[in-house]
Design a protein around this nucleic acid. Structure first.
Lengths: 139, 139
DNA sequence: GTAACTGCAAAATATTTGCATCCTT
DNA sequence: AAGGATGCAAATATTTTGCAGTTAC
């Protein structure tokens, strides 16, 4: 059922194209976050590198996906939940990065605690990334 | 006083060279974290791009600096505290990224809360990055 | 039909590698 | 003197930009 992808695209006022459907579909199918490289590999020769860059950028702007901070080079993207408006992300949930299989999970049910900052600092957004071993890779 | 840099290098079994002294000194002088670009700009023509790459890599391996996760492209590096052994970082403190001036602070006194993970997940490291406005940029 | 999206080419950037030379110990 | 560190050149990889052709609405 690729209808979900189409609905999402329409909801965000984007025209429905093959590229966008395929990429969005890929996000819907993968539990976790994806890097640009993941997508490029998955799509094979089907799409141009450049189109993927532009599509991801568009998705982020429209609030369909968001970036997840990581200490390594790779920028990871994950689907936003419904309450992400365009250009205004609310991703106050914890991300989990498995060191074993490399999967990034969005732990939607784990909320980010309020952090007490030193005087003069104002928090705007809080990103919390836990890394370790996921339930699949556990020995 | 550049002795501090020298001491640190020796403590980590690295030979003391001009490049390493200068870069480490730069870290010691800046309160926050630095990107590769920051360092390259600061050093000007003094050092080769490649040398900076290699130096940063060495410092990370030896546990002198660590990387800070971020959602944008730029990898940020910051000095480790003393309890970071080589190849085994313990940076369980909060990082703060000012959206205004771009400075990254290590909030050593703010500790990262324990996160309750779903069944089967084991935490190894927790990175918490708060972004907002710092005490200097406050209106 | 029109505006937006895509693919190709190419430019601009960033990162890595090999090797000869120089410096630290 | 020996091993490691640096600088240069060049190979790779990544990201951005311009433009012409194509597609969605």
């Amino acid at each position: 059922m690729q209808e979900a992808a189409i609905i999402t695209l329409k909801k965000h006022e984007l025209s429905v194209t093959d590229t966008r459907k395929k990429i969005l579909q890929f996000f819907l199918e993968s539990a976790g976050a994806l890097t640009h490289a993941d997508i490029e590999q998955q799509m094979g020769e089907a799409f141009d590198r450049v189109t993927i860059y532009r599509t991801l950028q568009t998705f982020v702007e429209k609030g369909i996906i968001h970036t997840i901070p990581s200490a390594d080079n790779a920028i990871r993207y994950a689907l936003c939940k419904d309450n992400c408006a365009a250009g205004h992300h609310h991703d106050d949930h914890v991300h989990f990065l498995c060191n074993d299989c490399g999967t990034t999970y969005c732990l939607d049910h784990v909320s980010v605690p309020k952090i007490k900052l030193p005087k003069g600092f104002t928090a705007n957004q809080t990103d919390l990334v836990v890394s370790g071993v996921c339930h699949k890779c556990e020995a």
